[in-house]
Every structure is written in structure tokens, then in C-alpha cells.
């Protein structure tokens, strides 16, 4: 009996795998195809549920398109051919990564433009702040006299100068 146990286990597992393979046939028929299908359709926008990918959408059209793309993968088409097929029919709209064209130049160049504007803004701000600091830190004649007097070891004049409080 003990000797038979591995065999029964194997049989049981085999039966299990048969059962599950039967249920999931359309998906598991060719894992490589499904993997590529998922990779391609995750980059494509569904036209019906516009904020979903074709991979994620449950819309009828998304289903049809997945079926069509599955067929194209099995027919040996490469990713670019498949994506061109969809762009030809639905336009750049299906692409989550729009191509660089004159019309999308601002879209792609915008972030860089804003970055450069930010750098200039920052520079402008820093230069102005620097100027303000040096201007406000310049000693007035009275302060200078006070400092010189202190450095010379004389007693400070009776009243501290009112123009320089620590807060200012």
C-alpha cells in the first residue's frame, strides 16, 4: 500500500491538472501568447471604457479586440504590426504613449519646458533674495561706529542702537 501512495498522489494531481486545464483552456492554451497579449493590450486604451486598457476592459469591443490580437499573435505578427493595425483603425487615441509629432510636441516637451522655467524662476528668486540679504545686512554708520567701539574695547554707548533688533 505504501508503495502505491506516490502513484495515487500522481494520479490525483494529474486529474486535478486535467480538470483545471479544461476549465481555463482559452487562456492557458498558449501561455506565451497570453503573455504577449497582456503586454500589448496593457499599452492600449479601450475606446468604449476610455479610462481602461484593452487588457482590463470588460467592454464587448475590448473582448473582440483581444480576440483579434490573439489571432494576430498566433499568425506570427510582431508587436509593431499589431499596434499599427489598431492605430490605423482607431488613431493615436488607442495609444497610452502617444507618438512624438508636431501636435504632441508640447505634451512631450512640456515637462522639460516647465523644468527650465522653474530653474529660471528659482535663479531669479535666489538672486533677488541674495540682494535683499546683503542690502539688509549692510551696517548703518551708527552700527559701524558701535562695532568699532566694541572692538576697540571701549564701553558700549549707553543705549543699544534701536535700528538693529535681533528680529529684523
Amino acid at each position: 500500500m505504501n508503495a502505491l501512495r506516490p502513484l495515487t498522489l500522481c494520479l490525483a494531481l494529474f486529474a486535478c491538472s486535467l480538470a483545471s486545464a479544461d476549465e481555463a483552456r482559452p487562456l492557458a492554451a498558449d501561455p506565451l501568447t497570453e503573455q504577449r497579449l497582456l503586454a500589448i493590450t496593457s499599452e492600449l486604451r479601450c475606446l468604449v471604457c476610455q479610462n481602461e486598457t484593452i487588457a482590463a476592459s470588460n467592454a464587448d469591443l475590448a473582448n473582440d479586440l483581444r480576440e483579434q490580437i490573439r489571432g494576430m499573435i498566433q499568425a506570427g505578427k510582431n508587436d509593431d504590426e499589431i499596434i499599427d493595425f489598431l492605430v490605423m483603425r482607431y488613431g493615436d487615441y488607442v495609444l497610452y504613449r502617444p507618438p512624438v509629432k508636431t501636435i504632441t510636441l508640447f505634451l512631450w516637451g512640456g515637462p522639460l519646458l516647465f523644468f527650465i522655467m522653474g530653474i529660471f524662476g528659482l535663479r531669479h528668486y535666489l538672486v533677488r533674495r541674495n540682494r535683499q540679504i546683503t542690502a539688509s545686512d549692510a551696517l548703518s554708520d551708527a552700527d559701524k561706529r558701535l562695532a568699532e567701539a566694541l572692538l576697540a574695547g571701549d564701553d558700549a554707548p549707553t543705549a543699544p542702537h534701536p535700528s538693529k533688533t535681533p528680529q529684523s
Partner: peptide, 13 residues
């Protein structure tokens, strides 16, 4: 019937 021609015409609704 299967909507293939629809896909060829870019029909989405």
C-alpha cells in the same frame, strides 16, 4: 455577425 468588418472600420459603438 462577428464585428470584424466593424473593427476594420474602427467602429467602437
Amino acid at each position: 455577425l462577428d464585428g470584424r468588418v466593424g473593427i476594420d472600420y474602427g467602429v467602437y459603438g
